[in-house]
């Protein structure tokens, strides 16, 4: 079911946290609300749940206006960061609770619970209480409980934050699988760009209560609309170098780079160079000295301090015998330089 948020405004006391935000999530789509903490993504989630009241604007599930409908009256399933399982109930009672509230007959509840338990693959754990379940299993129970009412929208609030690294990887694909299988419209709230990029169809990147860019993960990575977006996405992060644009691009340290085609701006700019686009495989052009090498197994990160100042980072396949102190002259892949104006907008 399509979800549409129009002119959404939220205030806490005198502080306006979100002003006139629009957001449309297509039916069956998984959308990420991504952003640093305090950007308003959780506030948006709570407004969609109905836990927070909206101070302005409207919310539609399909054609139904649910702006003033209470949380109980909306059909929204939520998975919370700490799962919020009811500690005194078994997994089965947890999953069945939403149906029990609806006074569904017991046998039917039992059948539904088993169906969901199969979907999230915890059929053998239904008698256990949350304290007897591992983090990943609790997560699956929470997911089943959120989905048993066949909600219009599924909301996931930092669902992976409390898991260790290995489980996180596993649950990432599990959640995506379940969302695809059921075709449910889902919103994932996260501050982790890897989660957002790997799990979602589209990402809404938020900052200070505004959506700064809404795009597919690939587009957002390759084609960021602002310096903030470019800096937020990518791990290891992009390097920024201030420069002056005239006939060519003159870096602050005096070195020059060729103007990328299509760049029309003149004057002060900030160049963004992703680490995979800088290295010996891209020829020569920027001279500097290696100041730090961080091996990561498959690849290694190399920090280069450019002659005359400015740091730039490269990511290289492991095995290159590069040591700190070495002087290098590496190039930038053609057509990959991102340029931003003084206000941070993409040029």
């Amino acid at each position: 079911m399509e979800l549409r948020l129009e002119n959404f405004t939220k205030r806490f006391g005198d502080v306006t946290v979100i002003e006139n935000m629009d957001l449309t999530v297509n039916s069956g789509e998984m959308m990420a609300l991504l952003g640093p903490s305090g950007c308003g993504k959780s506030t948006t989630l709570f407004a969609i749940c109905g836990i927070h009241k909206m101070n302005g604007g409207a919310l539609y599930f399909g054609d139904r206006d649910v702006t003033t409908v209470s949380a109980q009256g909306r059909s929204v399933g939520v998975v919370f960061q700490n799962y919020a399982l009811y500690p005194h109930m078994t997994a089965e009672q947890n999953i069945g609770f939403p149906l029990k509230v609806q006074r569904m007959p017991k046998a039917e509840i039992r059948r539904e619970v088993e169906r969901l338990a199969d979907l999230v693959q915890i059929g053998n754990l239904l008698d256990r209480r949350p304290a007897e379940l591992s983090g990943g299993q609790q997560q699956r129970v929470a997911l089943a409980r959120a989905m048993i009412r066949k909600p219009d929208v599924l909301l996931l609030d930092e669902p992976l934050a409390n898991l260790d690294a290995k489980l996180r990887l596993e649950m990432r694909s599990e959640i995506r699988r379940i969302q695809r299988e059921t075709g449910i419209t889902a919103i994932l709230v996260t501050h982790d760009q890897v989660e957002a990029m790997s799990m979602c169809d589209r990402i809404a990147l938020m900052r200070d209560g505004k959506i700064v860019q809404l795009d597919t993960p690939e587009q957002m990575y390759r084609n960021p609309q602002s310096q903030f977006v470019a800096g937020f996405l990518g791990n290891p992060p992009i390097s920024f170098l201030p420069a002056r644009a005239d006939a060519s691009l003159t870096l602050a340290n005096g070195q020059t780079i060729e103007r990328p085609p299509g760049l029309e701006a003149m004057g002060d700019v900030v160049l963004g160079i992703r680490p995979e686009h800088f290295g010996p495989q891209h020829g020569t052009g920027l001279k500097g000295k290696v100041v730090f090498v961080e091996p990561q197994g498959r690849e290694e990160l190399v920090d280069v301090r450019l002659d005359g100042g400015g740091d730039i980072r490269s990511i290289l396949p492991a095995g290159d015998p590069i040591r700190p102190g070495e002087t290098v002259d590496w190039g930038i892949a053609p057509g990959t330089i991102l340029a931003f104006g003084p206000n941070g907008d993409r040029l």
Binding site: C49, G50, I51, A71, Q72, V76, G77, V78, F80, A84, L85, Y86, F97, P98, V101, Q102, R145, A146, R149
Partner: peptide, 9 residues
């Protein structure tokens, strides 16, 4: 919150 979301008063 989960309880409210699950439809309980």
């Amino acid at each position: 919150m989960a309880g409210v979301q699950d439809g309980a008063s």
